[in-house]
Simulated scan of single mutants.
Amino acid sequence: MKGLKKQRRIQVILLAVVALIAATGLVGYAMRDGINFFRSPSQVVQAPPPPGEVFRIGGLVVEGSIRRGEGTEVSFAVTDTNATVPVRYSGILPDLFGEGQGMVALGRMEGDTFVATEVLAKHDETYMPKEVVDALKEQGVYVDPKARPES
């Protein structure tokens, strides 16, 4: 009788472990398209992503680079001051989108051009997306707008 209870307990534990592994695998499979990595323009130029990979790119919109096409077609360039990547977007840009401003776009590379499906812009005069700030700090060109010069 004791052997049967012990065997049943082991079977229940093994079944629970298998169910937990299966549930973890299903959650991971369901989330595979929801994970979008961030890349700076320098990272995109140095190590181009594989074709079709969806990722986010961010930086500053290059002065004088915004070109409006037919309808809602817009092209511009984004930079982190070390590299520049051309961007093409079809849609309505956020109101605060502009040259020299921080932005993050979601999309994929087609040749040498980033084709965006979504463009996000800063929301006030000091905001810049965290990923863009980190990339600019890594390049050594970020200046904190909140820092006050010493007297």
Rank of each mutant, 00 (worst) to 15 (best):
95 D>M: 11
50 P>R: 08
133 V>D: 03
24 T>E: 10
78 V>A: 03
32 R>S: 07
124 D>G: 13
73 E>W: 11
72 T>Q: 14
134 D>A: 14
8 R>S: 13
110 E>Y: 07
130 K>N: 10
60 L>M: 11
5 K>Q: 10
29 Y>V: 08
44 V>C: 02
3 G>L: 11
108 R>A: 15
29 Y>W: 13
111 G>K: 04
96 L>F: 04
58 G>Y: 04
80 D>W: 00
41 P>A: 05
144 D>A: 12
120 L>R: 12
126 T>M: 12
128 M>Y: 11
23 A>W: 08
49 P>Q: 00
30 A>W: 08
6 K>E: 13
12 V>Q: 12
134 D>R: 11
129 P>G: 12
18 V>Q: 06
111 G>R: 06
4 L>E: 15
74 V>Y: 01
109 M>E: 04
112 D>A: 12
87 V>F: 00
16 A>L: 15
146 K>T: 14
71 G>S: 09
70 E>H: 11
88 R>I: 01
125 E>T: 09
84 T>L: 02
12 V>K: 14
137 K>C: 09
104 V>S: 04
52 G>S: 08
116 A>F: 05
149 P>A: 13
25 G>N: 08
126 T>D: 12
16 A>P: 05
70 E>D: 12
27 V>Y: 10
118 E>R: 15
135 A>P: 02
68 R>T: 13
49 P>L: 00
3 G>N: 12
84 T>S: 11
97 F>W: 02
46 Q>L: 09
6 K>C: 07
6 K>H: 11
116 A>G: 10
21 I>E: 09
111 G>A: 09
124 D>V: 04
42 S>A: 13
34 G>C: 00
26 L>C: 12
53 E>K: 06
92 I>C: 00
79 T>N: 06
20 L>S: 15
108 R>P: 04
118 E>Q: 14
71 G>W: 02
36 N>F: 02
59 G>A: 05
79 T>Y: 04
69 G>H: 10
128 M>D: 05
66 I>A: 02
126 T>R: 13
62 V>R: 11
60 L>A: 09
34 G>V: 00
115 V>W: 07
108 R>Y: 11
63 E>R: 15
11 Q>H: 03
30 A>I: 04
83 A>P: 03
109 M>T: 04
132 V>D: 01
27 V>K: 06
64 G>T: 06
121 A>H: 06
135 A>I: 03
127 Y>S: 14
90 S>C: 04
88 R>H: 09
12 V>S: 10
96 L>M: 08
44 V>A: 01
48 P>N: 02
64 G>F: 07
94 P>N: 04
64 G>W: 03
149 P>R: 13
45 V>P: 03
69 G>W: 11
15 L>W: 08
59 G>M: 01
133 V>T: 10
118 E>I: 12
105 A>N: 05
117 T>M: 13
22 A>Q: 08
33 D>C: 01
148 R>P: 02
63 E>H: 14
70 E>L: 10
97 F>V: 03
98 G>R: 02
144 D>P: 12
145 P>W: 02
97 F>G: 01
141 V>Q: 05
8 R>Y: 09
18 V>H: 03
116 A>T: 07
18 V>C: 12
81 T>C: 03
118 E>V: 14
